[in-house]
Design a protein around this nucleic acid. Structure first.
Length: 571
RNA sequence: CGGGGUAUAGCGCAGUCUGGUAGCGCGCCAGCUUUGGGAGCUGGAUGUCGUGGGUUCGAAUCCCCCUACCCCGACCA
């Protein structure tokens, strides 16, 4: 591609409303343009990167035996009523009406459509197992779209759905997809990690997420020092306390904490370690007001909390409810002597504490020397309801937990019969008996991968594309071509040869563009290789080659250069 | 949805408090010079000051409504 015939639209200034590096660089490089909140156009440059990701995903899905199809993005309400997700999916579902007032949604995912397709197409166990996939635009009306295409409302997704007669078969395909995903992210040149995950709104039994590792990632993932187990922090289990609860040594007393509301402030005032304080988190569940207790140095894990019987879809308590049940405003609340009956859920670490500090349910006061059984009843529920922290022991002798940040780019689920059951997707087995199919589903955020790759690979000058995603493999930069017929001809010849070798080549044939601007553009848009053609080099029979990751030029003989650089790029 | 903020040229911003000719930088166009790390000079084009209403002789500026966008919290590929 010649830049003179391409739409290269780089800018020097960082757009004001871009707050992560990938979004800044994609805008500066001219890869994407915002149309509305969370809705982007892909420019010719950006689309080249997107298509490369898409091509690798498609190749590996095909290699793994999945069949590509394409389903509609607009889906009728009736289908979503069958699984009760028209209501359950909530505000993320973009609902639209046609001219006859018929109700539709823009597909955020395709379990309903594919299950409908499968129940119509699949009649016999002989047609199973089968795995259908598509690469298609999805729309999720995110509460808060941000970070450019990393968390957009409209995005490109590869979604696959497999159908099976039994669980074992489903699990084999799950493993097959897990392996295909591993190949995909490896080929894309990304540092990634598969982690055990919560199933969320999609549902089902088993699930893994694939995360691109990057410090700017929105997700925390936990992995053990022994045994190679990794999980989303939402799921990572905290080991039960090793030692039993000590006997009380202090008596219960009120202490004045006039302005100290947080555990940190209270611990500092009392000269106690943060781990001696207890945080009280007020929620309202199906069975009323609940106080959740975790240690002052821990964080409540709301996903774990949701799984506790009787809580269901809990919500944070309002300030009025807190005052009503405990007699105090937030900041000084605790489980001792509530005004009204409440239930108490204690994290396992809290249940094993003695002589701890809690809010006194009185503004300006906390209680210290608090002990279970003596000063308040034993907790109603003791469970693991907190996030694990860096360095703490992992369960089952798996060493210690470490925490890293990741960007979720893939997710595989064993759905079981959830959708097939709700929608009556059955086939006849070898005995002529109707059996409900088992399903798996497997997603990859194609557009998100482009952003994630940048988060993981950039420097002060711009993007550094992994070879597999780069919109162009190599840039040819002629210096002084406006004055030198020789340079112009040599660059044209090199461009033709590299193109003939099957590479995606960008030739900077713009008139009157000075060298500094050429270099800056090539580095910003992240072309992994560049070759400078100038009078200096031609006199010496050399090109100046530079890898995007290198700090200096290498002089390469013109003779044999195309072969050499083609091998560099292909390896 | 709750809280906070912004809206002025293609982009980044000043001007608003204290009402009176709409500005700066980058980019864009033309010419000349320059040419190995985002060139210099000269000249030029570009705005319903987010929308609607009000106050006023006069509104980017003051008041009201609306809308869009951004940031912080509960979601997910």
């Amino acid at each position: 591609m010649r830049i003179s015939k391409f739409h290269l639209a780089t800018v020097k200034e960082t757009p004001a409303d871009a707050d992560v590096i990938s979004q800044q660089l994609m805008l500066r490089a001219g890869m994407i343009r915002k149309l509305a909140a969370g809705i982007y156009s892909w420019t010719p440059l950006g689309l080249r990167a997107l298509r490369k990701v898409e091509a690798i995903v498609r190749e590996e899905m095909n290699r793994a035996g999945a069949l590509e199809l394409l389903m509609p993005s607009i889906q009728p309400r009736e289908l979503w009523e069958e699984t009760e997700r028209w209501a359950k999916f909530g505000g993320q579902l973009l609902k639209i009406k046609d001219r006859k007032d018929g109700e539709f949604c823009y597909g955020p995912t395709h379990e309903e459509v594919i299950t409908d397709f499968a129940r119509n197409e699949l009649r016999s166990y002989k047609q199973l197992p089968i795995n259908f996939y598509q690469i298609q635009t999805k729309f999720r009306d995110e509460i808060r779209p941000r970070f450019g295409v990393m968390r957009a409302r409209e995005f490109l997704m590869k979604d696959a759905y497999s159908f099976h007669l039994d669980t074992e078969c489903m699990q084999r395909e799950y493993q097959n997809m897990y392996d295909a995903y591993t190949r995909i992210f490896t080929r894309l040149g990304l540092k990634f990690r598969a982690v055990a995950a919560d199933t969320g709104a999609i549902g089902g039994s088993g699930s893994h997420e694939f995360h691109v590792l990057a410090d700017s990632g929105e997700d925390a993932i936990a992995f053990t020092s022994e045994g190679n187990y990794a999980a989303n922090v939402e799921l990572a289990e905290a080991a039960a306390p090793a030692s039993p609860r000590p006997a009380p040594t202090e008596s219960l007393q009120n202490v004045a904490t006039p302005t100290q509301k947080t555990c940190e402030e209270v611990a500092e005032l009392l000269g106690l370690p943060l781990s001696r304080t207890v945080k009280s988190f007020a929620v309202v569940g199906e069975q009323g007001f609940v106080l959740v207790l975790v240690r002052g140095d821990h964080m409540v894990n709301e996903i774990k909390l949701q799984k506790i019987a009787g809580l269901g879809d809990f919500r944070l308590a309002t300030e009025a409810e807190i005052v009503d049940h405990l007699g105090s405003t937030p900041g000084f609340i605790g489980p001792v002597a509530p005004v009204k009956a409440i239930s108490v859920i204690a994290d396992r670490s809290v249940a094993a504490m003695a002589d701890f500090v809690v809010g006194a349910n009185q503004a300006g006061f906390h209680k210290r020397g608090v002990n279970w059984g003596r000063d308040l009843p034993e907790p109603d529920v003791v469970a693991d309801v907190r996030n694990v922290v860096e360095g703490e022991p992992a369960p089952n002798g798996a060493g210690t937990w470490s925490i890293a940040r990741g960007i979720e780019v893939g997710h595989v689920f064993q759905l079981g019969q959830k959708y097939a059951q709700a929608m009556g997707a059955q086939v006849l087995d070898e005995n002529g008996k109707a059996r409900t199919m088992y399903m798996g589903c497997y997603g990859i955020g194609v557009s998100r991968i482009v952003a994630a790759a940048i988060e993981q690979n950039h420097d002060a000058a711009g993007i550094i594309w992994p070879e597999a995603i780069a919109p162009f493999h190599i840039a040819v930069l002629p210096l002084g071509a406006d004055r030198s017929e020789r340079v112009r001809e040599a660059a044209e010849k090199l461009y033709a040869e590299l193109t003939a070798a099957g590479l995606d080549v960008l030739l900077d044939d713009r008139k009157g563009v000075r060298p500094g601007a050429m270099f800056a553009d090539q580095e910003l848009i992240g072309i992994p290789h560049r070759v400078v053609v100038g009078e200096r080099g031609l006199d010496a029979g050399q090109y100046e080659y530079r890898s995007r990751r290198a700090a200096a030029n290498e002089m390469k003989p013109i003779e044999g250069f195309v072969d050499w650089v083609t091998r560099e790029i292909r390896k």
